[in-house]
Design a protein around this nucleic acid. Structure first.
Lengths: 240, 240
DNA sequence: GGCAAGGAAAATTTCGAAATTTTGTCCTTT
DNA sequence: AAAGGACAAAATTTCGAAATTTTCCTTGCC
């Protein structure tokens, strides 16, 4: 993926102290949240060396809370600590993307199977509601920065989260969320992922139908295909 | 599991600075490693409030590197940060143990299936070697602190690691390792887990045989049972 | 030209005091 | 008795200078 780019900081990292939650949140925690977002949204580029002096200025925080925030992100795999040489944003690779995609497919189907097995009526109602909510906003090719992009992503995520919400395994959901976010980092890195040739509404509708019919094998096959199609698009971009 | 116990620090946390690696390792990283071990070995008890002044003394490190180490452990789920109130060791619960055990079973069989599918001759040789090595040291009820306990555990882990080594998914192996360590924390918390009524050597031999025969369904069933039996023992202890 | 050594500048890490927050105790009010 | 307020002590978090390490540049040697 070419040379390590210089650190690039977006405007969200310059948010004033005023926006810090007033419920005991520390400067370190606040910086952590902001840094995390900037990494996940690729405003801090993969592989980039994190210059502490620059970050201290940009995030309006001292060295100690800054290091603390970065250390916490190291524990999450989003930064890499290089002893005596500071921190670096975790890098990306085609191999990792492939690993994530395959693993997401497995984890998602595992969680889905468990959910179908354990889900109550209320869970079904929630899935139906999330599908309905999603379909009310047809996927479109919106201009970069459009609020509709974020809104669609929110509804999309809500839909997928609802499918597995009844799996009964908090740890599995945490693993799933982690993989999702790392996958999103790739998607954002590769700009807008194309959905040409895909009928997303139909894909989502068919997934929901299989789930609500409690047909685990079909639902799992459909969700795995859904994930694979997205990853294929990204892999194609990386290869070119 | 009763009231939150007071912080208890074992001798390993008082290791002198001399033992810090001389390859650029920071004080923060050194403290992280030691703290991590102490949490995983339950020398720092689950749920315990981590008193920074005491830790600073016990681990011979200042507040900044100490907080940094603790933050990193927060990112790994081993500590919980409580805004303006410091850190706490992550707690344990019967529900979490159950979640981990079930998830470990699923993850292990997934990794095993992939390994069986992808494993080379060299991988098979490694599995055979690990089994042989393990069986050369029959499991016994050794006195606490006996080096044989650690040696057996090392060989045991080596055996299980070898089974899944060819799965080809670094992220899956990381998730698996994480779950294993969290599970080990429970095991250590519950003192020596009993293996009465179990013929561990036979269990290990049968698992290896199925794996080397490339019989994924059988191998997965056996490994899942192996994990379930261990978890059942722990669940029984928690219930009593 | 390539490599090694030395020194200055830049960057990173740590320290410990100051600033801030939380906790605990005592007293008053309802 | 329970709740609230005030205040001191204890604990936590942060700051920024000092200490330490790394990086970069220059010089000299082969």
């Amino acid at each position: 993926m070419g040379a390590t780019p210089a650190i690039s900081v977006g405007i969200s990292s310059a948010i004033a102290d005023d926006e810090r939650a007033h419920d005991g949140e520390t400067l370190a925690a606040s910086a952590y949240t902001r840094l995390r977002q900037d990494i996940l949204k690729c405003r801090l580029m993969p592989g980039a060396k994190l210059r502490l002096e620059a970050l201290r200025r940009d995030y309006s925080v001292g060295f100690s809370p800054l290091r603390e925030a970065l250390a916490r992100l190291t524990g999450e795999g989003l930064t890499i600590v290089e002893g005596q040489r500071g921190f670096r944003v975790a890098s990306v690779s085609a191999g990792d993307l492939e690993d994530i995609a395959r693993l997401r497919s497995e984890i998602e189907t595992m969680a889905l199977r468990m959910s179908i097995e354990k889900g109550s009526d209320a869970w079904e109602a929630d899935v139906a509601a999330a599908l309905h909510h999603l379909l009310l906003l047809p996927h479109g090719r919106w201009p970069a920065g459009s609020p509709l992009t974020d809104e669609w992503s929110r509804r999309h995520k809500r839909f997928h989260d609802s499918l597995v919400a009844a799996c009964g395994s908090p740890r599995l959901l945490a693993i799933r969320e982690d993989l999702f976010e790392h996958s999103e980092r790739y998607r954002r890195l590769l700009i807008e992922h194309g959905t040409e040739g895909r009928d997303l509404a139909t894909e989502h509708r068919e997934i929901a139908n299989a789930v609500l019919a409690r047909n685990a094998p079909t639902a799992c096959a459909l969700i795995a295909g859904h994930i694979r199609a997205t990853a294929s698009t990204m892999m194609a971009i990386i290869s070119s």
